[in-house]
Design a protein around this nucleic acid. Structure first.
Length: 582
RNA sequence: GCUCCGGUAGUAUAGUCCGGUCAAGUAUGCCGGCCUUUCGAGUCGGCGACCCGGGUCCGAAUCCCGGCCGGAGCACCA
């Protein structure tokens, strides 16, 4: 049958052409239709030329119709195609080979040498989230095996647990590597006994030269009995720091010199550098690849989610797994996460605090969880953002706007509203006809949350004094009409640097809305409460908020209308709050 | 230098494995309308991207080759 006579096909083409035309200003493009039809009917691939001819004819017919005619046909025949599809929330992609395992086990394994920050958020949230999705297990493992250079500190074990709790990442099991040295010794012993590891006495430079040349160092060729003797000597303190190291045998031909016979355990003079938890009990300490490598298997890890800086470590550890006859877990290596303007480097954070540049681990300029928490950034917002970013291996530089947007949606629903006037200016309003009792809703969409109430009573017969923001005052000029939110409408009379004089004109909101007058917030003079806002760059803004704010408890987030969301630090002789975002 | 990754709007992400329904979706941002006693939220519309060059193919964001750019690792750190 020729294609021209195939009415089913022609109808199919007609539909595609009409849909294409409707989507693109009434003009369908033949090429797009060819693609669509070939995609649906694979068997026509050998007859592309013939098909193109048919399509050209149909497209011409369709393009001769007006857009409204096309729309009418589409709506009549295929109304379902014009429905907009709901956008669904971003989901995490499936874990590789998840079906191979009975239970998914993931972990977060920090070195407790600093507080946690946004840079760790990917490891934490993705690991925890995947464990949740697959009804698996999430393990916290402290990797505190360097008592010298990256020395752990007792306070950080606890702060890490707290941060995880705050993030809503419930821990199923917790381990501390400094408790596990006997386990590492046991497996090291086995590796040496089996001839898969050796004790190397070479000075680092000699070893490096050998390994770059793909040549074994003299220690590698020793018998396992000789190596076992050396190993005993290590454990018994027979070597000083730097004199011996256990190496795992790998393929010396591996293209990457960094993986060849990597070091697994070394000696630390713990008399000089005591470990914060176990003091000077051990002198032989495992390196990352031995400790993490053994633990990942022993703790039943199925999926390791960590930064791409660990990619080579996976290659190294696979040699050890081979020696032990173990199966390496699935590993996902994501890229580094930065956020514009914030320092996410442990060393810079620690150094900045030492030098007094930052006020502490929760300085608003830092990307630590402590700082974010203090500013009123919710864990839910962080979680959403991290899930959005996913597990790609390229680096990402997040913008704060993105985090703020997620956070704003959460805070908007939960935060009560108050007035705050930064750098206040006094406004004197005359011709006040009566005393006003105002009830200001705490939340515009949730009346059940209640109100703040103020009595605005004229003094000297007909005058009222209020505070307004300097920024608003700057836009005033005589005869301008302004509404004080939920109060009344005024006309500006006189503007000076210290004071603004205005006149009451009416009370009705509706009439002022018609002329689209500016609405501003205010604080009654006498009912003001000194307020200091700490901005994300650590600069300060002073002003007045409402008296009612005295009741607020630390760590509540609220919105100062037309100013932004803030989180209360304290409400004592004055209100101190941290600015989250607009 | 060596060994690996990766490059889609300002930012982030979907699509890439397995070429066609992608004249590229979504979120955020920006612009405008509506709504709203906040400049918040909501809602409607608009702006904005496949790193470059070749090749294969009727057809390439997708496959191949070359280049450019970015990142990671190359510790007796984690």
């Amino acid at each position: 049958m020729t294609l021209v006579d195939d009415s089913e096909l022609k109808e199919r083409i007609r539909k595609a052409a009409l849909l294409n035309a409707v989507a693109h200003d009434g003009k369908a493009q033949p090429g797009a239709i060819v693609g669509k039809i070939l995609g649906e009917k694979v068997e026509l691939r050998s007859r592309v030329k013939e098909l193109s001819n048919v399509i050209s004819k149909v497209v011409e017919e369709v393009n001769n119709l007006s857009l409204s005619e096309q729309k009418a046909i589409v709506l009549e025949k295929w109304p379902e195609t014009q429905k907009k599809k709901e956008t669904e929330e971003k989901q995490l992609s499936d874990l590789p080979n998840a079906e191979k395992y009975k239970q998914i086990v993931t972990r977060f394994s920090p070195n407790p040498d600093c507080v946690l920050h946004l840079g760790s958020a990917r490891a934490i949230i993705l690991s925890h989230e995947y464990a949740q999705i697959y009804k698996g297990k999430f393990i916290l493992r402290f990797e505190d095996t360097d008592p010298k250079v990256k020395k752990a500190s007792l306070k950080f074990y606890e702060s890490i647990r707290e941060d995880l709790k705050w993030l809503g990442c419930k821990i199923d099991e917790e381990y501390i590597q400094s408790d596990r040295l006997p386990i590492y010794y046991k497996y090291s012993n086995k590796l040496i006994a089996d001839g898969n590891a050796y004790v190397c006495e070479c000075v680092p430079e000699d070893f490096r030269n050998k390994v770059i040349a793909k040549k074994p160092c003299p220690c590698r060729t020793l018998t396992s009995t000789e190596n076992l003797e050396r190993w005993e000597r290590m454990l018994n303190g027979g070597y000083l720091e730097g004199q011996a190291v256990v190496r795992i045998k790998t393929d010396l031909e591996n293209p990457n010199p960094a993986v060849r016979d990597w070091p697994a355990l070394r000696i630390i003079d713990t008399k000089k550098y005591p470990h914060p938890r176990v003091g000077s009990k051990y002198v032989v300490w495992p390196l990352y690849n031995l400790a993490a490598g053994l633990d990942d298997h022993l703790m039943g890890m199925t999926h390791i989610i960590r930064g791409k800086e660990h990619y080579t470590n996976m290659v190294r550890q696979k040699y050890m797994y081979q020696h032990l006859g173990w199966q390496y877990p699935e590993a996902i290596h994501y890229g580094r996460l930065k956020i514009t303007g914030a320092f996410l480097s442990k060393s810079k954070i620690v150094q900045g605090i030492k030098e007094g540049i930052y006020s502490g681990y929760d300085d608003p300029r830092l990307g630590t969880f402590a700082a974010l928490r203090k500013r009123g950034i919710t864990p839910e917002a962080i979680k959403k953002m991290i899930i959005e970013v996913g597990t790609k291996s390229n680096d990402v530089t997040l913008s704060w706007e993105n985090l703020y947007s997620h956070n704003r949606k959460i805070l908007d629903a939960t935060s009560n509203r108050y007035f705050f006037v930064p750098t206040p200016t006094q406004i004197t309003v005359k011709s006040i006809p009566k005393t006003f009792h105002v009830k200001l809703p705490l939340h515009p969409e949730k009346p059940d949350r209640g109100y703040r109430e103020y009595e605005i009573k004229p003094i000297n017969g007909d005058t009222v004094e209020l505070w307004i923001s300097n920024k608003d005052a700057e836009t005033f000029e005589p005869e301008k009409i302004i509404r004080l939110i939920e109060l009344f409408n005024i006309k500006i009379k006189k503007v000076t640097a210290e004071n603004i004089t205005a006149e009451f004109i009416s009370e009705s909101y509706e009439e002022i809305r018609k002329i689209k007058a500016k609405l501003i917030q205010w604080v009654p003079k006498g009912a003001e409460y000194q307020c200091q806002i700490v901005l994300p760059d650590a600069s300060l803004v002073e002003g007045y908020c409402e008296n009612e704010c005295k009741k607020l408890k630390p760590n509540t987030t609220l919105q100062f209308e037309r100013y932004g969301f803030v989180n209360i630090k304290e409400a004592s002789n004055k209100l101190i709050a941290y600015y989250a975002h607009k």
